[in-house]
Write a protein that binds this DNA or RNA. Structure first.
Lengths: 148, 148
DNA sequence: TAGTGAGTTGGAGTGCACTCCAGGCAAGCG
DNA sequence: CGCTTGCCTGGAGTGCACTCCAACTCACTA
């Protein structure tokens, strides 16, 4: 992968060590060990290496990748798209244009979502204000509602 | 339901008519007719009335309700929570405090989500900038990447 | 040396939110 | 009259993203 496929910001890592067990990574990334193995099976991880006994040993690079995946996941990118992205990263630099396209289109999605959320926030504020008034005026039961 | 359970803003309605068929409502709300029937089955609709032949006839009030449901849905409120809300609305005004609680807690969720999306947007901007540079520098294939 | 705890696998199961299907009814049209 | 269109029902099926299971290995401690 290219240098830009590691996250730009660093988050606190368990220790200064450079190889992590699956449960350490699960804790760090907020995913279950199951999910980490599943990510690997479906091709969402860039080949995790193993200890001499066959246990997974994640590197800081893997943690960086998981940071990015976590961000994309939180913003609702489908797993299939993330896998496509991961594949492109593995395929090398001739895929940068497509990667750019994928990321840009996702960015548009995210922008749209922010706008949607914002507009819902307005509706919620309005309704919460109304309910607040209602609760402030008569908190006790025993009156009839105008409609319903 | 109370007056505040209709949406504060009006959106364009199919026609000035006051009773709509399921497919008109599907078009309007951006849901399938299947989904509208399903909403009713699970108790997410406040009793839709019927024509003399048993077909659903939605009112403007139903459309208002669907506006709200659509907003909540877009902001990721689980259907189960929306059903709880709908039940409370049906139960009458003694549930306003709980409704307020539910809405307020959802508002916090939405605020958190906006912040998350915003932070992802920053990451995306950063990566897209890097990819942009890369594409600007060498759009043709045939070179080796620094890593992988 | 036996037990505990953390890891391994492939495959099956879960929960959510739809989505579709088969079979049927009612209205309108040529 | 037959045909098409739109709607009805209960129940089954789908896709996504996990989530768990059974059966196993390995390292460590009492």
């Amino acid at each position: 992968m290219t240098v830009i496929d590691s996250a730009p910001v660093r988050t606190a890592r368990p220790e200064g060590r450079e190889r992590y067990t699956i449960s350490e990574v699960a804790d760090y990334a907020g995913l279950s060990a199951h999910t980490l193995r599943w990510y690997e099976r479906i091709g969402l991880m860039p080949h995790v290496d193993r200890s001499h006994t066959g246990q997974r040993r994640y590197t800081d690079r893997d943690l960086d990748w998981l940071d990015l995946v976590g961000k994309l996941r939180l913003t609702g990118m489908p797993v299939a798209d993330m896998v496509r992205y991961a594949e492109m990263v593995r395929e090398g630099d001739h895929t940068v244009v497509d990667r750019l396209r994928l990321l840009s289109s996702h960015r548009e999605d995210v922008r749209r979502r922010i706008a949607e959320l914002q507009s819902t926030l307005d509706v919620l504020d309005y309704k919460i204000d109304r309910y607040g008034e209602l609760c402030g005026l008569h908190t006790s039961p025993g009156f009839t509602s105008p409609d319903s």
